[in-house]
Design a protein around this nucleic acid. Sequence first.
DNA 1: ATCTTCATTCGACAACATCGAACGCACGAA
DNA 2: TTCGTGCGTTCGATGTTGTCGAATGAAGAT
Lengths: 255, 255
Amino acid sequence: MERISKTGKGIKSDETLFALIETLRELDGAGVTELADRLDVAKSTVHGHLTSMREHGFVVKRGREYHLGLAFFDYGQYVRGQMGIFRSGMQAVDELEKATGEMAWLITHENGKAMYIYGRGGQNDIDINTILGTWAYMHCNSGGKAILAHLPDEEIHQIVDEHGLPARTENTITTREALFEELEQIREQGYALNRSEDLKGVHAIGIPLMFEGEIQGALSIAGPAHRLSQERCEGEVLDQLRAATDEIELNLAYR
Amino acid sequence: MERISKTGKGIKSDETLFALIETLRELDGAGVTELADRLDVAKSTVHGHLTSMREHGFVVKRGREYHLGLAFFDYGQYVRGQMGIFRSGMQAVDELEKATGEMAWLITHENGKAMYIYGRGGQNDIDINTILGTWAYMHCNSGGKAILAHLPDEEIHQIVDEHGLPARTENTITTREALFEELEQIREQGYALNRSEDLKGVHAIGIPLMFEGEIQGALSIAGPAHRLSQERCEGEVLDQLRAATDEIELNLAYR
DNA sequence: ATCTTCATTCGACAACATCGAACGCACGAA
DNA sequence: TTCGTGCGTTCGATGTTGTCGAATGAAGAT
């Protein structure tokens, strides 16, 4: 397994540790031997790292298998709770879901990818928790595009360099030219649409959340194409999104 | 700062890494110099670890400060999603909240502490998300006691050795004798009560969740003492909890 | 502009992460 | 029951590499 850092600047032993964490996730838990084989390191090395992690709750031993521990959930909740956008935006998401009956999401970005940090299900039969905390490409996501549109051009190029513009459906934007054109339009109109660019049959509209001139994240409404037409998005839903945005940006200011 | 592992078995460099993570949380983000001073290591050492973490999304740099990254939230959601009790119990918690109008919680334990892994607010004005993912003592928590009651005696002693029985209110159980008496009663009656043992004015009732003879966690209902009397707990609420438990244990079996 | 205060880089050295072999424990087969 | 296999764990030797401190850059502040 390849486990060297890209730049070579970091600490090698940490790299092994993170590879262990990653592998434990991929395998949904594993034993020392299996991990050592997979990462091509000595069993004793694996055992040492696991012992350290165990003392800090990042790993638990169940029988002879090691699993990632609840410390991750603890830290995860902390990290989310620290985000101003989360604290100021939760209530708005709740209200939006009620008003529209569709899925409402709060989205941020880190390292060129978008993440769903809070959401409500609407009248859809989807389990919010399977989406919460997962990474998404920014170029085929309404919230992601709304964020991208407010990043400096240089950063956008970096992101495309790193993650590419993979086609998720036939509607996905796959060229830089098309992307920059779209982002220009998004800046002009103040919102981003997603017409089945990520998942077939799913439409969405996203609106940027700014604070002190910086993009903080985005708010989005998503739903089945038949119910969430472009007309509805750009009409009633957009109005509700704009109201919610104002509320959030006000919250961000007065705290 | 003390940073050596208790047993001395683990890896020292990992210990530094975890100390960094912990400190970044305590300080809500910090710079290299501040971290190096606090942990009493060279700046270059801190910088090396931060670089490694950054490459894996566990840390982000905002200006000159480093902050814990969303990778924690990602992993945290994964860890919770892996728990059978979570997947099988969410719906029951939703239903319980609706039926009782009180807070409903799903609780697990790891390393002698209880953690809230899913909850609903009831008609209370409390923000669920500030409690979600936090650790709690088991001896002064209805769910915690329900779990403790089904652990082997030896393990209970270990837990008390490690975490003690700190008094949170005047009602908290603070001696081993009283604790074991209480646990015996809990085993007999099949549920655990919390009469302001953790927070003044807050009552709760917890019920163990078993699967394949092993304790998996607990379900609990909590609310203000004036509304959640002992009579109500042991009457209507207990019935609803028992029904929910059956549902969850059935879900755990057929998946 | 100058000074200060950071983050970052670099080379040298000894600490310690890594390895592999040996141990001991648990489980299943005979 | 006994043996054998497969696993997690321990241990000492080795040289890789984590750590240090000084030097360098890059920003802010005065």
